[in-house]
């Protein structure tokens, strides 16, 4: 935790508050349809599988795999100065939902599609926790 956090601070939309509150408590919250069982992310107000409005927030196991990834070699934001190269990935959680995050704890050269990963929670500031992913 740091007062001089230089990276972008997300501005949650009204539907995303449970996700960010969950992250602060080190839970990876995603949405689930109470009718068809479909899981999805990012948040919406209807099931993206069947259209039902009978939906709930649930904690994901945090286990998944890297669906795809890129490695940033160019600085687009001063907050990442000194961290180039870094990996940004689309993570497919075992519940089926996909989300954007970083792959950490491994050299970028070793990141591969379909690699098994597990969530880790990075407390970025006193009020912001980011779910990131580490190879299992």
């Amino acid at each position: 935790m740091s007062d001089d956090y230089a990276k972008a601070i997300p501005i949650p939309g009204p539907e995303s508050v449970p996700f960010w509150e969950g992250a602060k408590n080190h839970k990876l919250m995603i949405q689930k349809c109470s009718d068809c069982g479909h899981h999805w992310f990012p948040p919406s107000t209807v099931c993206t599988g069947c259209g039902s409005r009978n939906i709930e927030w649930v904690a994901s196991s945090g286990k998944g795999k890297i669906f795809s990834f890129v490695v940033f070699h160019r600085l687009y934001h001063k907050g990442w100065d000194g961290e180039i190269p870094y990996a940004v990935a689309v993570i497919e959680l075992e519940e089926g939902a996909r989300m954007l995050s970083n792959v950490i704890g491994i050299p970028v050269e070793e990141v591969k599609c379909d690699m098994a990963v597990d969530v880790v929670f990075e407390d970025a500031t006193d009020t912001l926790t980011l779910p990131k992913f580490k190879p299992v």
């Binding site: 972008a8 997300p10 501005i11 940033f72 934001h77 907050g79 990442w80 954007l100 970025a124 980011l130």
Partner: peptide, 8 residues
């Protein structure tokens, strides 16, 4: 403004 820039 979320699900993107915070991850670089």
């Amino acid at each position: 403004m979320e699900f993107g820039p915070e991850f670089g």
